[in-house]
């Protein structure tokens, strides 16, 4: 693969995933910046384990071969904290003991002084018309608001790729469209390679990218 093609891209090179010795999946795919690749499959097909492998949280009962390369760097064995891979789950998982703003500050790298960092967080909230939520208790927000804050938190951490683990399935259908649109739009703006795991065909259709079925 040429350099121009892997720059800023997420490449899964001949990744084979095994659980207790039996093979779950075999993938070879490159996700370009701004592209959303969707992985579909029944539960137990290993799609969540794939995300664990990429983000560095694979339990020891799993094993694998192959490489994960992000922006030209092999991150297969990197510390999870150093991988620069943003994660979003089905639940927003905002830290309930921190305010919205503190949640976002937690995501923001420790660059600049306190006021600068606060400015950045407020700007990010303002950009999506949620400036007034900064001091709220996350548990008092609606589900849709929580999901969006969770995404902003991920984006503020300056990831180089985005992994989405059925992030819309907990939302009711009206809200789901809005949040999905929001997430895909943000991924596009930030030009991030995005891997979406879902069992919802509509999610896959709306992603507008390659669909892999396990």
């Amino acid at each position: 693969m040429s350099d121009t093609k892997t720059e800023n891209a997420l490449c899964l090179e001949n990744v084979r995933l095994f659980h207790d010795g039996s093979k779950l999946l075999d993938l070879n795919v490159t996700i370009q910046p701004g592209e959303v690749v969707t992985v579909m499959g029944a539960s137990g097909s290993g799609k969540s384990s794939l995300l664990n492998l990429i983000s560095g949280f694979l339990p020891p009962s799993f094993s694998y071969t192959g490489r994960v390369v992000l922006d030209g760097l092999d991150i297969t064995h990197a510390d999870p904290a150093d991988r620069k891979v943003g994660l979003m789950f089905q639940d927003p998982l905002l830290f309930p003991h921190l305010s919205v703003e503190e949640n976002l500050l937690f995501g923001l790298p420790a660059k600049g002084d306190k006021t600068e960092r606060c400015e950045k967080v407020r700007a990010a909230l303002g950009a999506v018309n949620m400036a007034e939520l900064g001091h709220r208790d996350p548990l008092t927000l609606s589900g849709g608001q929580q999901s969006r804050i969770a995404l902003i938190r991920v984006l503020l951490s300056e990831p180089k790729a985005l992994l989405l683990d059925e992030p819309f399935s907990a939302l009711d259908s009206g809200l789901r469209d809005k949040v999905r649109e929001f997430v895909f739009a943000q991924a596009k703006i930030k030009n991030l390679p995005t891997l979406l795991v879902t069992h919802d065909q509509l999610d896959a259709d709306k992603s507008g990218g390659q669909i892999i079925t396990l």
Binding site: S55, F57, P80, K84, L87, L93, F95, H97, P159
Partner: peptide
């Protein structure tokens, strides 16, 4: 819920930071 720790780590926090600022406060 270990996913809180995974979120914290993938946001760039070290395991110790995740323990001190996420897990312990939430388990207060």
């Amino acid at each position: 819920d270990l996913r809180y720790l995974q979120v914290a780590t993938s946001l760039g926090a070290s395991q110790n930071k995740a323990l001190l600022f996420v897990r312990l406060p939430m388990l207060m």
